[in-house]
Simulated scan of single mutants.
Amino acid sequence: MRKTFIQCGILGWGMEILWTGLDSFRRRDFKLTGHSSLWMFPIYGCAAFIGPVSRLLRKKNLLFRGNLYMLGIFLVEFFTGSLLKKKNWCPWDYGDAPLNIHGVIRLDYAPLWLLAGLFFEHVQNSTKKGGSLRPSGSAT
Score class of each variant (00 low, 15 high):
residue 3 K to R: 14
residue 58 R to W: 12
residue 129 K to V: 00
residue 30 F to A: 02
residue 117 G to V: 01
residue 92 W to A: 09
residue 101 I to H: 04
residue 99 L to N: 14
residue 73 I to W: 13
residue 97 A to F: 15
residue 60 K to Q: 15
residue 74 F to M: 13
residue 12 G to C: 00
residue 55 R to L: 13
residue 38 L to M: 07
residue 7 Q to A: 05
residue 74 F to D: 03
residue 58 R to V: 11
residue 16 E to H: 08
residue 135 P to C: 12
residue 40 M to W: 04
residue 52 P to E: 05
residue 64 F to T: 14
residue 30 F to H: 09
residue 108 D to N: 09
residue 57 L to D: 05
residue 132 S to G: 10
residue 107 L to C: 05
residue 104 V to Q: 03
residue 66 G to Y: 08
residue 79 F to V: 15
residue 126 S to D: 13
residue 40 M to G: 05
residue 43 I to T: 12
residue 100 N to P: 00
residue 36 S to V: 04
residue 43 I to P: 04
residue 120 F to S: 07
residue 125 N to R: 14
residue 42 P to G: 03
residue 87 K to C: 05
residue 23 D to M: 12
residue 97 A to K: 15
residue 94 Y to S: 00
residue 8 C to A: 15
residue 69 Y to A: 09
residue 33 T to Y: 11
residue 76 V to C: 08
residue 93 D to V: 02
residue 116 A to G: 10
residue 3 K to I: 07
residue 52 P to W: 03
residue 99 L to P: 00
residue 15 M to P: 00
residue 24 S to C: 10
residue 23 D to E: 14
residue 39 W to L: 09
residue 140 T to Q: 13
residue 58 R to S: 13
residue 76 V to H: 07
residue 115 L to P: 05
residue 59 K to R: 15
residue 76 V to T: 08
residue 94 Y to E: 08
residue 120 F to E: 01
residue 65 R to Q: 11
residue 114 L to K: 11
residue 48 A to T: 12
residue 38 L to R: 06
residue 63 L to H: 09
residue 75 L to C: 15
residue 95 G to H: 04
residue 76 V to E: 04
residue 60 K to R: 14
residue 102 H to C: 14
residue 71 L to T: 11
